[in-house]
Amino acid sequence: MQPCLLTLRLVSRFIRCSRWCAVRRDDQYSRRWSSSGSDKQLSQGIESVASYIKQQASNILVMVGAGMSTPSGIPDFRSPGTGLYDNLQKYDLPYPEAIFDIHYFMMDPRPFFTLAQDLYPGVNYKPNIAHHFLRLLHEEGKLQMVYTQNIDGLERLAGIPEEKLVEAHGSFATASCTLCGRRHDAGRVKKAVVEGDVPVMCEAAKCKGKVKPDIVFFGENLPSVFWDYHLQVPFTDLLLVMGTSLEVYPFAKIADEVGRKTPRVLINLSAVGSFGSRDNDTVLGGDLVQTVEELTKALGWEEKLRALEKNYSLQSGNEE
């Protein structure tokens, strides 16, 4: 076996072991707290959250994961059968995570670029109501910051200002050489990838590096701005977590870094992470889009949200 492939497989085993441990932790908390209460209890929870947002919250820190984008048609990573990692057979990868492994990319970038053709923001997928709801929180002066695990760029497309957005796992908005680090025109890289003119090679003299969008691969560091969450959480007066399993660290750690008395609200299919371990935790289980719609109604923001959706549709239509 080649040394590089041996290293990749060892890394894969480590990643899977770490995730298994994280899932076991999540299972422990899920047993302590169940969000499968009655519709009446769920309604009361939504009304309480809406009241707090309207009357008290002014620095809402939001954490979002893959479940935020699945209503837009983007598959998550790990759902059995439908997840991205279960549908990569056509790429002939040594293991699913290799498609986002920087060492494998250096050996063979074609699988990632093929996937990127589909994932590029604005090509096949558009923001859904949950993304527009985050934009509305900003418009209402309630949004402190959005931390997203997603690389699809739908938060940007929905109009979340860059200064209010931390893309923890990178984005397609910029592109760099994997060897010398030189920044390249993101528009040119997008055009090359979408049209299949890959790999994109560095333009720097004597550099033979491959250029890729600044997605954080396994083996790369998170953006330095991510670690500024330590400066944010002391001022957070409401944590809103949407569509994430809270399995991937260090991202998931943010949920436990807010003050012990800070209200935490989870909108997800089921309880995850440490939700349910604090007195001020609220779990709004079930379908994310439906829950967001009900929360918007309880806030009295329905017309404002529809206006944002309409404006986005008009703008995206003009750009096409």
Rank of each mutant, 00 (worst) to 15 (best):
Q2D: 15
L8R: 09
R19G: 00
D26R: 15
D27A: 14
D27N: 13
S30L: 13
D39Q: 11
S43K: 15
S43L: 10
E47Q: 14
S48H: 02
Y52N: 05
I60P: 04
T70M: 07
G73D: 06
P80W: 02
Y85F: 08
D86G: 08
E97F: 08
E97V: 01
Y104A: 12
M106F: 09
D108W: 08
A116M: 03
A116H: 04
Q117A: 05
G122F: 11
Y125T: 07
A130S: 15
A130V: 03
L136W: 00
E139T: 14
N150R: 06
E155K: 07
A158H: 01
G159W: 05
E163V: 08
K164T: 04
A168I: 11
A173C: 13
A175D: 00
L179I: 11
A186G: 03
A186F: 08
G187A: 08
R188N: 11
R188D: 11
V193A: 06
V194I: 12
E195D: 14
G196Q: 11
K206D: 15
K212M: 04
K212G: 10
D214A: 09
F218Q: 03
S224G: 10
L238C: 10
S245C: 05
L266S: 05
I267V: 13
N268K: 04
L269F: 06
L269V: 02
F275V: 02
G276S: 01
R278S: 04
D279T: 07
T282Y: 12
T282H: 02
W301R: 08
E309M: 10
L314H: 03
N318I: 13
